[in-house]
Structures are given as structure tokens and as C-alpha cells.
Amino acid sequence: MTNPDLQGLHHQYLKGLKREKRLVRFFQVLIFTSFFVLWEFASRLHWIDPLIFSSPSKVWNLFIQKSVDGSLAANIGITVTETILGFLAGTLLGTLLAAVLWWSPLLSKILDPFLVILNAMPKVALGPILIVAIGANMTSIVAMGTLVSVIITTIVVYTSFKEVDPNYLKVLYVFGATRSVCFKQAILPASFPTIISTLKVNVGLAWVGVIVGEFLTSARGLGYMIIYGFQVFDFTLVFLSLLVIAIFATLMYQLVELLERKLIKND
């Protein structure tokens, strides 16, 4: 019996992988471009109402115009800032609340039904109240972004705190550790991966809160651009905002994912 040509087989295997990858890429690009081409033609040939559905070329022209006068960059800056502040605050506050609940088992029992109600509640419905209470400004929009994510973060992180193997605490207690030492040495570091993964979920949630907040305050930002375009029947503006949101939301999500991979690998 002859030895199989392993080198050759491996080479073939790699080639197969490459071919599949090329195929996947090809179809992805095809879908992406045909979507825009089809959109453009459908609009020009009046298969769809160009007043409502606009067209890629009109969106592109508007993009150039808004980029030149600087208004697009300003609005993007505002929305992105609000979103980042919102999801950071939501994650931090949620973790803090989870720590308080872990600290006092009695308090966590008392607060349990309220957490369930708050979690079930669609948070954006509180928007008008928030704006009346805080004012129609950036703070209330960031608060919206925070509010959407804070309760679910609290619940998820608290669950992770509780699931830490009690034997780690046993090790620490034998050394004479206090409860706060246990939190710092075992509970928090053991839950670190969970906290990072809520960060990823919270990016998406914060976008929801912030866009709705901007709808309501109608002053600045990408959410405002959408609602304004809607009111003056300028749907090119609406589509421009939507595309920009899609790009920035994806970028932010990818960044957090990158951060997650870095942090989890390090420990």
C-alpha cells in the first residue's frame, strides 16, 4: 500500500475552502449591488413611487450636499455620542444595581417583582415623561438610551453573580475575607465575560432608545432627520438617515465585538 499524498490532499482541501469563500463573497456582493441597482431602476421606471421610495442616486446627491454643508456630520456626531453614553451608562448602572442586589439578598427578594414589571414594560413608552421631567435636551435622550438597557443588564448580570461557584467564596472566607473582598476577588472577575457580552446587546438597545428620544425631542440627530424628513415629505432624507444609522450601528457593534474578543482573550 502506498502512503496517501497528504500534502496534495491538504492543498486540495485548502483550495476547496477558498473556492467556497469566493462563492459566498460573490453572492453577498451580488445581493448588495442588485438591491441598489434594482432600487434605482424601479424608481426611475416608476415601478415604485419615487416620491416615497426615493432612489439611491437622490440619496447620494443629498449625502454629498449634506456632507459639504457639514450638517450630516454634526447630526451623526450627536447621535453617536448619545448612543455611546447611553449604552455605557446602561451597562455601568446595571452592573452597579446588580452589585447592590447581590450585596443584600433581602433587598433583591423585595425588589424582584418590580424588576419583572420594569423589564416587561416597553421602556420607550416612558419617553414623553422623561422629556417633560428632564427637558428636551441631550440628557433626556441619553437617559432614554440608558433606560432601555439598564434593567435587562441588571437582571442578566445579577444572575451571573449568583451563579459563581460558592466554593470560590469558601476559599476566600477561610482566609478571613469580608463580603466586599469576595465581590472584588471572585464575583466581579468571574462575571466579567457576562458584563462584556451585555455591552454588545446594549449597543443595539441604546440605538433604539436614542432614536426614539430624538423623534420625541425633534431637535437634532439622525432620529430628528428621520422625523423631519417624514413631516416635510422628504423621503430621500429619511432613507439617507436610515442608511447612515445602519452603517454606524454596525460599526459600533463590530467595535464592541472586537473589544470583547480582546478582553476575553487576555484573561
Partner: peptide, 22 residues
């Protein structure tokens, strides 16, 4: 304990000095 319960996010050095630190 029955299992070692070394803290996986700490190095061996940090693990063995944990009691003294606490």
C-alpha cells in the same frame, strides 16, 4: 477543597499569595 478552585483569571503567583493579601 476537593477541587483546587484556583482562580482562573489570576496567575499562579497571584493565586498562592491570595491568602496573605486578604
Amino acid at each position: 477543597l476537593q477541587q483546587d478552585y484556583l482562580f482562573p483569571w489570576k496567575t499562579i503567583e497571584e493565586n498562592i499569595l491570595l491568602g496573605l493579601k486578604i
